[in-house]
């Protein structure tokens, strides 16, 4: 019953997100055609015939808004998002298919590492409250979480890439490597992903530390923790088996929401490092006014984050029976 209700809510949210993606360009002033014509108009007046030709070329949807909506839904369901303007004649789905795995590796790996490491440090800071073991991680973590992603990225790229030549300065794999399922290619990809991952890790770790610290301090005030201590259990047992185990649940809800922030950050990070993932593609689509690609990318990002949140929700229900009611 719990799972069914969650699935229903998920489908409703999915529909709302897809509809929002449909409405967004229609709520905005101007249109792709206007933008293209504005460029042309700098060279002289634009006739109506040219306008019609541009609309036909861009595949501007016709018909009333309801017809447009249903043809859009059909496109989404068949994953047919048309042809990219800037990477003509490649289709949008093709472009996304190439970029998606890189971002999934980057964001997925970093988020899991940040969650595990951040939670462990958070447990430590709450347990050692008001000692230097608390102050140091809390302060450096909250300072680092205010670093703009692109700034950390630029600094790491400059010092580790350009000055020390320790890491490659752009791309997802070296010029001599060719995409194949070999060990060499795999390590090459990891080597190129190191600096982008480190950037995201530096910025996102602090949030997990603070979140876990606050949740843990709340559980440390509970009676059963005091009771466990009074029973003479070892400090480490009380901290990990009693307090942390209960504090990790509230922290887990942050997981889905944090993912949205990390995905947003990865747009900036990928742009700095020229890392050919979803974010870099989105940036290029925006700069090139490639509206079909941009809309499909935004939909993909939203739906991915929705699915991740849905999975966290289900997991939460499994871990904490109280939420199933």
């Amino acid at each position: 019953m719990f799972v069914l209700r969650k699935i229903g809510l998920f489908l409703l949210t999915l529909w709302a997100a897809i509809t929002l993606n449909f409405l967004l360009p229609r709520l905005m002033p101007g249109s792709p055609t206007d933008a293209a014509i504005a460029k042309l108009a700098q060279n002289g007046p634009v006739t109506d015939a040219t306008r019609a030709a541009i609309e036909a070329q861009l595949g501007v949807p016709n018909g009333n808004i309801l017809e447009q909506y249903f043809s859009y839904l059909h496109q989404v369901l068949t994953l047919n998002f048309g042809v990219s303007y800037t990477f003509y004649p490649q289709s949008v789905s093709e472009m996304i298919g190439q970029a998606f795995p890189y971002t999934v590796i980057l964001v997925g790996l970093v988020t899991v590492i940040a969650f595990v490491v951040g939670t462990l440090i958070g447990v430590l800071t709450a347990w050692k409250r008001n000692t230097w073991l608390d102050a140091l991680p809390t302060l450096t973590g909250s300072f680092a979480s205010t670093f703009p992603y692109f700034w950390t990225a630029l600094l790491l790229l400059f010092f580790m890439g350009y000055v020390l030549h320790l890491f490659p300065t752009s791309g997802a794999f070296g010029p001599t490597a060719s995409p194949a399922l070999t060990w060499d290619f795999f390590t090459n990809v990891l080597y190129h992903a190191a600096l982008p991952s480190l950037t995201i890790l530096i910025t996102s770790l602090g949030g997990w530390i603070i979140g876990m610290r606050n949740a843990m301090i709340n559980t440390l005030g509970d009676d059963y923790v005091t009771f466990a201590e009074a029973n003479g259990l070892r400090g480490r047992t009380v901290a990990i088996r009693y307090a942390a185990r209960n504090a990790i649940l509230p922290n887990l809800t942050g997981f889905g929401l944090a993912l949205g922030g990390v995905v947003g950050g990865s747009v900036l990070v990928e742009q700095v490092f020229g890392y050919p993932g979803i974010g870099f593609l989105l940036f290029n689509a925006v700069i090139g006014q490639d509206y079909p690609l941009m809309q499909a990318l935004f939909l993909l990002i939203t739906v991915s984050v929705l699915i991740a949140n849905f999975l966290v929700d289900i997991m939460y229900g499994v871990l904490d029976p109280r939420t199933r009611r």
Binding site: A17, L24, G260, G261, V267, V305
Partner: peptide, 11 residues
């Protein structure tokens, strides 16, 4: 749930 920065970029 909608990621803020991508939404901002698109708008």
């Amino acid at each position: 749930v909608i990621p803020g920065l991508p939404l901002m970029i698109v708008i």
